[in-house]
Simulated scan of single mutants.
Amino acid sequence: MLAACASRPTGVLTPVGKTVPEASTVDLLVATTRAPSGDPATLFTGERDNLVSMADIVVSIPPEKNRKVGEVQWPRKLPPNPMTDFTTVSVTPIKTNLQEAAWIRRHLPKNGRVMVFVHGFNNTFEDSVYRFAQIVHDSGAKVAPVIFTWPSRASIFDYNYDKESTNYSRDALEQVLRTLAKEPGVKDITVMAHSMGSWLTVEALRQMAIRDGRVNPKITNVILASPDLDVDVFAKQFLAMGKDHPRFTLFVSRDDRALSLSRRISGNIDRLGQIDPTVEPYRSALEKAGITVIDLTRLKAGDRLNHSKFAESPEVVQLIGTRLVNGQTITDSNIGVGDRLGAVALGAAQGVGSAASLVVTAPIAVFDPTTRKNYDAQIDRFGRAVGNTMGAVAP
């Protein structure tokens, strides 16, 4: 239960220089506040550096026939086999602002979208790079992928060090976001954070809003997956962003064991990633704030700690790439059983209709405060209409 964001084999970042034709590649812009290791197999340590280092890292993904969506396939031995393993193809240091701008322009898709990923607790540098490469590939997101990786010692006994490392990295993440937003071709930025990285992300956005009066308008979407955030603190951070804040989407799961441990460490205060969005006081607060919550509690996917469902469920990671990054509002009706989002057999509910089937059987629930009231009323009316033959359908 103490494993949190899982540890992985080390020393896989030595570039192999090429891959196989059947494999896919993901080209990442990496920014980090970690100290360099001096070893090409690891590149960076879990210690802190005064500077922000940047690199262009190309990761090879094994052919679809040899892998399962949602998994990072770590090599069992080195050098890795690109047919079966994630492989580092190349690592190119980026030393100047001009080189950074050139990378952005070269990799920016026509839609002008950038996606920035901030990893969570207990991650090595290579953990974070390979996980984001997997998310970008499996989600199919049409974005320029940027990862911000902060100094984590990747040890379950260094929770407090990791937490302070997020505080240490706030200014650096804010500056990376500002640099991306200044690029003329960038039209839209989505920031996705996992676990403790959510604290870093929200803090960086909060201080940006305090400095400028608002979060940069190009930062339109913020996705917090299993956020390791004190709910009371998040409420204050959110208010500090003002009325012109980005659209927030939360992935939560009440069976997240890693967050259960964090809750105990942090004074037994609810963690944002474990809330039940359908009960008070959360329901009203989320509705007022306009925050969408996707509850993955009943979804059976991910690691043993239920802490990485957002990345390891094929349906959820594809939802990120096809809808959330594109700025689409997620509602109960467009995330339902028809999308196979962890759907189970419809059973007796099959004849009732897709909306009612979602309520009865879907092992994933969406709380979208902008549409929930209308949806509840619709279900109430539908339930009364079929009540004589099918029985009441509760919202």
Rank of each mutant, 00 (worst) to 15 (best):
I147C: 04
R384A: 15
T249C: 08
G321Y: 02
A258D: 08
L13P: 00
A355V: 15
W103C: 04
P395G: 04
V233Q: 08
K18T: 10
A6Q: 11
D188V: 02
D171M: 07
P369D: 09
R271M: 03
P82F: 06
S266K: 13
P36T: 12
I291C: 04
T220W: 05
A355I: 14
I269T: 12
L358Q: 10
S284N: 03
Q318R: 15
N123W: 00
Q274T: 09
N326P: 00
G140M: 06
Y130D: 02
G342H: 00
T278D: 10
P281H: 08
R247S: 03
V176T: 13
R247T: 03
A55R: 01
A3K: 13
T14W: 05
G321H: 06
R106D: 13
L78N: 13
R211T: 12
I210C: 10
R178H: 08
P93C: 10
A392P: 04
E280L: 02
N334I: 04
N334R: 08
A141D: 01
N221R: 07
D49S: 15
S266W: 09
I94D: 06
Q207E: 13
G120I: 01
V146H: 01
Q350E: 14
W74V: 04
D295Q: 01
D256K: 01
S90H: 06
A144G: 05
M208A: 03
L173T: 03
D339S: 12
V129A: 01
R178C: 08
A6H: 12
E174H: 11
N388P: 07
T370A: 14
F125V: 12
E164K: 15
D255G: 05
G302V: 01
V325L: 09
V72G: 06
V231M: 10
V186Y: 13
